[in-house]
Nucleic acid binder design. Structure first.
Length: 855
RNA sequence: GCGGGCGUGGUGGAAUGGUAGACACGCCAGACUUAGAAUCUGGUGACGCAAGUCGUGGGGGUUCAAGUCCCUUCGCCCGCACCA
């Protein structure tokens, strides 16, 4: 009687077995080559979603595959556990953030365990645990000492209702995302990490990250935004002050027609104090907010200060000084010179305010006498005109000469500036890692001594008022100054949660030691050989981690600069969305797809509007819960579906049909092995020589599949690997069962199929492996090796073309010469038919590939 | 605007310049079933009775040979965006 495929039973059994045997517990071991595979750790929201299932399935395939290849594999899991949602839950549900977070962790851990991931749970960490964050505090002290952490005044988005700082992405159309209050630009003292200290290195080293997606490297390159130029000093007529500007186009200096200051430039502020009109203009600019989106839509506006600047190269030429809303204080010096002929922004501004437009670069092949600028600035290469001593030079040559002249005169110097800014890490929030310093009236900022770490969050806090609970806490912040022992106050800011995730990969190497990382452990395990996660972290998380690793190297914790040798960014999981007639979003399970193609509400039968496929999100309810799929079909089916069909870097459309297809395949595998069509010899049986041709062909298929799947897994082509395995099992279904030795070949094929699919669907693979008569788990079985003699076929099929069009195929021995191939091709009836009455001009023969007859 | 990616059957997707559509989903027909579900067998790019012709967004080019390389154009997606 058929034993049915019962994933529920199988999966529970093997998960318990793996855990009991401690198969995934890893020890630091120098004898085998190491392999560190890591997926981006999750935020403990309480439930896993399909994005997690995809991410962790991909990582688990890599981990299991590398383990089978003989690597000592580190594959850990942890929790990115600090952050605002816990405080929101505390406020809304009256539950303490710690309790809420640890509860969520427990729930998600249980869900993850049901996926059958080959994780070393003994290394689990949670960033909200003092055992983790005390080391982060120690690292901060190291960075402080090394000059990589500092405090400065900076503009922030301030929500006056919630009394907190908002990140740019939390400001929507100039208002706080939750309170709806108009966000203010406020100057606050904030802690910063000096990421700009490594700007050059972070940029230059990108090109060495060969196993990173090109796209991510480009995004980081743009983000760092290096540009080479000059810092120039302009004197102001009738004033003792000077204005410094930054430019990359000092060769266009002869075309300068104005200077523009940022609304937040110190000189602007000084002038505004005496000029109400300017003060109003600055206020208007600031109201727009700091969010990039707001700036984007702002039209170019300026305010003439009445000041005149002296042109540094043209005696007697004076340039008006404006304050302009498009000049950023954070970039360069916060002031520019405008050359309207060769910069579109400057041109727009000049046209609006009636300023001169002087062309100083003539495009190649254009008569300088007739060259004029209309609505478009000319930014290309060319020859300088109207430019005094650099007339006739190229852009590069002009730059060089101007730079030499101005540097010689002490009016400027060459400089490289970056778009990248130092990383502000202060957050006025409770549920984060406390920044371990004390503010003392007499000593200033005093680091908390290391023997007093960790600075632990107080537990008795309330969330019924806006603002930072640490600030309001009656006693927590009051401590004696560590230096002078007089009353002082703790820093009440906590770290941005991106800090927590910037070094967790290092902590996993020695998760329980009483130093942040142990040298021997990180020297052995780092870098992470394969990191896997979402593209949404292409910039911030990855850049911060690269910074942290460098800073930790400065502090002597690690010896390397790049934490992630290989990076894979997976696509997202998408689903159609559904809305009823009232526009209310519906969950997929509330919707019925009728035979006639109509889509209706399952209960009411009313028509449903089907939206496009997009990323699963709670707000649109186009989500499918992993637990439901695992309950219904099992983890192996969910994993197989995640890997089939779509390449992992692309978005994946969730479909019920696809899940059913994966299920059907596993069920058929089960049947193939439960009741093989021919009796199998016992495990360990050696296949005898003298198989007939079809059986030999099957063996070739088996070994070709080993080679193909191995290469597919190496290259992250999981969808192809699945297809190859299906091809193999399709082939095994058609075996000539009556031939002598069929049972032995079938055994070989089934065993290989099970071993190849093992990394993807580990539970059923172990169950079938046992069913095939083996005592041990596949986890302990090495990856199969293809027999090279069987991979190489001894006959090949050549395509035969006439004038490039396929006319037939011929089968030849693997070793054949051109003449033989040509003769065989010429004998093909279909070729003869096509050649009838035509003269053969030449014949192209590529042995083993193709014969092309040209007429 | 700048940068990057992608356009292949009804659908997801395969194809070191060398037999386009592997492997699936769906669909069609048949078998088994009281029926449905499940399962099994066969078929399935388009046109054509067939021989065959046409087919990888459009146009052009290189080549004996182009989904693949080059030019051009259209469309979609993503990232960045007043960065001086």
């Amino acid at each position: 009687m058929t034993e049915r495929y019962n994933p529920r039973e199988i999966e529970a059994h093997w998960q318990a077995y793996w855990e009991r045997e401690g198969l995934f517990r890893v020890i630091d071991d120098d004898t085998r080559p190491k392999y560190y595979v890591l997926e981006m750790f999750p935020y403990p929201s309480g439930r896993i979603h399909m994005g997690h299932v995809r991410n962790y399935t991909l990582g688990d395939v890599v981990a299991r595959y590398k383990r089978a290849l003989g690597f000592n594999v580190l594959h850990p899991m942890g929790w990115d556990a600090f952050g605002l949602p816990a405080e929101n839950a505390a406020r809304d549900q009256k539950v303490h953030p710690a309790k809420w977070t640890y509860g969520n962790i427990a729930a998600m851990r249980a869900e993850l365990k049901r996926m059958g991931l080959s994780l070393d749970w003994s290394r689990e960490i949670a960033t909200c645990h003092p055992g983790y964050y005390q080391h982060q505090q120690a690292l901060f002290l190291d960075f402080l000492k090394a000059g990589l952490a500092y405090r400065k005044e900076s503009f922030v988005n301030w929500d006056p209702v919630d009394q907190t700082v908002l990140a740019n992405e939390q400001v929507i159309e100039g208002r706080g995302w939750r309170s709806g209050a108009v966000v203010e630009r406020r100057k606050l003292s904030q802690w910063f990490f000096k990421i700009t200290a490594f700007a050059d290195d972070l940029l230059a080293t990108l090109s060495t990250l060969e196993r990173w997606p090109e796209r991510v490297r480009l995004m980081q390159e743009n983000w760092i935004g290096r540009s080479e130029g000059m810092r120039l000093r302009f004197e102001l007529a009738g004033w003792s002050e000077t204005v410094e500007i930054f430019t990359t186009r000092h060769d266009t200096l002869f075309g300068a027609s104005f200077l523009a200051l940022s609304p937040n430039h110190p000189l602007t502020e000084k002038l505004a104090a005496a000029d109400p009109g300017l003060a109003a203009f600055v206020a208007e600019c600031n109201r727009i907010g700091t969010s990039e989106a707001a700036i984007e839509h702002a039209e170019k506006k300026g305010y003439d200060t009445g000041l005149k600047a002296r042109h540094p190269l043209i005696e007697g030429r004076l340039l008006p000084v404006h304050v302009a809303n498009f000049v950023l204080m954070d970039y360069g010096t916060g002031a520019i010179f405008g050359c309207p002929a060769h910069d579109q922004r400057d041109l727009d501004f000049a046209r609006k305010y009636g300023l001169d437009v002087i062309p100083v670069v003539a495009p190649p092949g254009i008569d300088p006498a007739t060259f004029a600028i209309a609505d478009e600035a000319y930014v290309g290469e060319g020859t300088h005109i109207n430019s005094g001593f650099i007339d006739g030079t190229s852009v590069a040559e002009g730059k060089e000469r101007v730079a030499q002249r101005l540097e010689g005169a002490g009016r400027g110097k060459r400089e490289t500036v970056f778009r990248l800014r130092d990383w502000g890490v202060s957050r006025q929030r409770y549920w984060g890692c406390p920044i371990p310093v004390v503010h003392c009236e007499s000593c200033g900022i005093v680091p908390v001594p290391r023997d007093q770490l960790p600075v632990v969050l107080p537990e008795d806090v309330s969330f019924d008022q806006p603002g930072n609970p640490l600030e309001r806490h009656p006693s927590w912040k009051h401590v004696p100054c560590p230096a002078c022992k007089r009353p002082a106050t703790r820093e009440t800011d906590t770290f941005d949660t991106f800090v927590d995730s910037s070094w967790y990969f290092g902590r996993f190497c020695s998760p329980r030691t009483d130093e942040p990382v142990t040298r021997a452990a990180v020297d052995y395990w780092l870098p992470v050989d394969q990191y896997i996660g979402g593209i949404e972290h292409a910039i911030l998380h990855l850049l911060y981690s690269r910074f942290f690793t460098r800073a930790m190297r400065v502090a002597g914790h690690v010896k390397l600069a790049e934490p992630f040798a290989g990076l894979f960014t997976q696509g997202m999981v998408c689903h159609e969305s559904y809305q009823d007639q009232g526009g209310k979003w519906l969950y997929p399970e509330e919707v019925a797809h009728l035979q006639d193609g109509r889509v209706v509400h399952a209960e009411s039968g009313r028509p449903v509007k089907v939206g496009r496929r997009e990323v699963m999100s709670k707000s649109k309810k186009n989500v499918v819960a992993p637990s439901v799929i695992i309950d219904g079909y099992g983890a192996d089916t969910a994993r197989l579906f995640m890997l089939s069909d779509s390449p992992p870097e692309r978005d994946l459309d969730w479909s019920d049909a696809g899940v059913k297809g994966a299920w059907r395949y596993l069920a058929s595998l089960w049947r193939m092995m439960s009741e093989p069509k021919v009796t199998l010899p016992p495990a360990g049986h050696i296949i005898a020589d003298g198989l007939d041709a079809p059986l030999l062909e099957t063996r070739r298929l088996i070994h070709r599949t080993i080679a193909a799947v191995s290469s597919d897994l190496d290259r992250f082509h999981f969808n192809r690997a699945v297809a190859r395995i299906r091809e193999l099992t399709n082939g095994l279904e058609d075996l000539p069962f009556k031939s002598p030795g069929a049972g032995a070949v079938l055994r070989e094929g089934l065993e290989i199929a099970v071993r190849l699919i093992g990394p993807m669907t580990p539970h059923i693979a172990d169950a079938l492996w046992q069913k095939l008569g083996h005592a041990t788990s596949l986890v302990r079985v090495p990856w199969p090796k293809a027999d090279p003699n069987l991979v190489a076929a001894d006959t090949v099929t050549l395509a035969v073309q006439v004038n490039g069009k396929l006319r037939g195929t011929i089968v030849l021995p693997k070793a054949h010469d051109k003449a033989k191939a040509e003769a065989a091709a010429m004998a093909e009836p279909s070729v003869l038919r096509a050649l009838e009455g035509k003269a053969v001009k030449k014949v192209i023969v590529v042995p083993g590939k193709i014969v092309n007859v040209v007429v």
